[in-house]
Design a protein around this nucleic acid. Structure first.
Length: 207
DNA sequence: CTCCAGGAGTGTA
DNA sequence: TACACTCATGGA
């Protein structure tokens, strides 16, 4: 089912090569936090302002007064939480450079990330996959809805495992698949329109 | 006016 | 383990 779903989604939404454009890996780390429960347009405003002020790095974030950082994050919502989270992340990547941290084994790095404020399963995997370039599949709300429509349910780890054992452990494939699910979800998994869901067009098969 | 977006943390049963 | 609640801005 996982492979067939991927084929159908890719056929409809294409390569999505420029799905997540960023100038640096740290920008992707920050984006992973800011996009939590937030539209990307609002995240982009904050990222552009941070770039304009040249403060998209751990050192600059740590140098910002808490109040100023919060004000900067307002367009992305939940700015109290996200400010604390970004501080913790900046602190971590300040004492452990991204090069060193991202060279750690996936499981080790994942646990490190989960220890940071505001980083749960999904955000940890988003950072691993899109910033660190590790083959760690991301499960988000759309993924859960989509699979549920196909009769598949389970907790985060179970769904993640299901994707990873059904796909080649390839970064490009994982990133592309996740992007496809998001784009499909924004189109068909909101409010109504669930009847257009790709699951309905899937040839029945197991696994 | 209402609804909710590429979640996480905390508290309760 | 399973929910309910909270955090918050901005666009439709």
């Amino acid at each position: 089912m996982i492979l067939e779903l991927y084929e159908v989604l890719a056929a409809e939404f294409g390569d999505l090569d420029d799905w997540w454009v960023a100038d640096s890996v740290f920008e992707r780390v920050v984006g992973s936090i800011l996009t939590q429960q937030t539209r990307w347009e609002n995240v982009d405003r904050v990222l552009r302002e941070m770039k304009r002020r040249d403060i998209l790095c751990p050192e600059a974030i740590l140098a910002l007064p808490q109040e100023e950082l919060e004000g900067l994050l307002k367009p992305a919502g939940f700015y109290h939480n996200k400010a604390k989270s970004l501080r913790d992340i900046a602190r971590y990547f300040n004492e452990t450079s991204v090069q060193v941290a991202f060279a750690l084994p996936v499981d080790t790095l994942r646990k490190e990330l989960l220890g940071l404020k505001g980083v749960g399963d999904e955000t940890a995997d988003a950072i691993l996959l899109f910033a660190a370039g590790k083959p760690s599949f991301v499960i988000d709300a759309y993924t859960k809805k989509l699979l549920k429509c196909g009769g598949v349910e389970g907790d985060y780890a179970e769904l993640k495992e299901r994707f990873e054992r059904s796909l080649p452990a390839d970064i490009r494939t994982y990133q592309h698949y996740h992007a496809l699910i998001i784009e499909h979800g924004k189109r068909y998994c909101r409010r109504k329109a669930c009847e257009e869901c790709v699951i309905a067009r899937l040839p029945r098969s197991k696994n």
